[in-house]
């Protein structure tokens, strides 16, 4: 085990752990935001640069500071490393810069975006963004493309985190979409319009940090903060069948995977609990699900508000399920 210090808090982690995961082990305020890193997807991370941290001392053996800010999601810790996240002025500046870059071409259409309320870019902008913009140019737009009847691709909102590309590579049988072109006109596309249709393709919606990939069966149905998230399970031959159903009254408005506080799908029986398309898009009938109880969304977003929940999970369960 190696000892590292993140924002004056010491933590012991396995050798080879990344700085981000060491900070996540401490939890709370010292965790850098991550827009592209996804611990369940191999190879992800390093791209969005929001998780930049300052390394004030490289290691106990070589305590020189690193000259540049480093991406905490892809830099492994060394014994005796001293990391500054919230306590570093440079990091705050760097992160504000990245936030500005991510927002200059973003359409900022949160009022009509289905992701609003659970959007990582909203959180990031709220924490590190500025009120105004210095970008006077026309924002970049893309022609809409149709990628099937279940998933809506809204490329203007995309921040090119590559998560959906890794998901398609690692979870589904074959990947039919990818990043086309380069520079600021790079886009997620299927090249020759083709539906993304695969048993597990719906998971790209869960991994998308912004509203670029959303659920067509839920499109414009409701705002997420009006819904009641409930843990639910079902018998499914394709996946573990553990999901979260988002209820509007007695009806299931949408189904998603079970996400933890970092927006990542939780493990179910030792494996990542990706859910299949059938569970996600087709089982909108309450009778098909065994509702276990309310799910607490532990993020600083508006979803956690207005759940009509009490502090007693048993009472909540009774109130929400009627059982």
């Amino acid at each position: 085990m190696v000892k590292v210090i993140v924002d004056d808090i010491e933590v012991e982690v396995e050798p080879g752990t990344t700085i981000l995961n060491a900070a996540r082990k401490i939890g709370g305020e010292v965790v850098p935001p991550a827009m592209c890193y996804y611990s369940k997807l191999e190879g992800s991370g390093g791209k969005c640069r929001t998780c930049l941290v300052e390394v004030a001392a490289g290691s106990a053996a070589d305590p020189r500071p690193m000259p540049k800010l480093v991406a905490s999601c892809s830099t492994p810790v060394q014994d005796g490393m001293v990391i500054k996240n919230k306590t570093s002025e440079r990091v705050r500046e760097g992160r504000a810069a990245v936030t500005e870059f991510l927002l200059i071409n973003h359409p900022l259409d949160c009022p009509i975006c289905d992701q609003a309320g659970e959007c990582h870019l909203q959180d990031l902008g709220f924490e590190h963004g500025k009120a105004g913009t210095r970008y006077e140019e026309k924002r970049r737009t893309y022609d809409p493309i149709d990628i099937g009847d279940k998933i809506k691709l809204h490329m203007n909102r995309c921040i090119l985190c590559y998560r959906c590309v890794y998901t398609a590579n690692q979870i589904t049988d074959n990947r039919v979409h990818g990043v086309m072109h380069r520079g600021d006109h790079a886009e997620i596309s299927t090249y020759i319009e083709k539906a993304i249709d695969n048993d597990f393709s719906g998971n790209v919606i869960d991994v998308c940090p912004v509203g670029a990939l959303t659920d067509k069966t839920f499109r414009f149905k409701s705002r997420v903060w009006f819904l009641k998230p409930m843990n639910a399970s079902c018998e499914c031959t394709k996946c573990a069948g553990k999901a979260v159903v988002w209820m509007f009254g007695d009806e299931i408005a949408r189904v998603t995977g079970r996400k933890d506080q970092y927006g990542e799908i939780e493990d179910v029986d030792g494996k990542t609990g990706w859910i299949c398309n059938e569970c996600r898009f087709d089982k909108k009938d309450k009778s098909k699900w065994n509702i276990e109880g309310p799910r607490v969304i532990n993020r600083h977003s508006v979803i956690s508000q207005g759940h009509y929940l009490t502090n007693d999970p048993k009472r909540d369960a009774k109130k929400l399920t009627g059982k």
Partner: peptide
């Protein structure tokens, strides 16, 4: 701006800007 690969956000958005 033309040759940026578009992988990381500061370069992708910054060069174009």
């Amino acid at each position: 701006a033309h040759e940026s690969c578009g992988q990381c956000s500061p370069c992708r958005e910054g060069t174009g800007w």
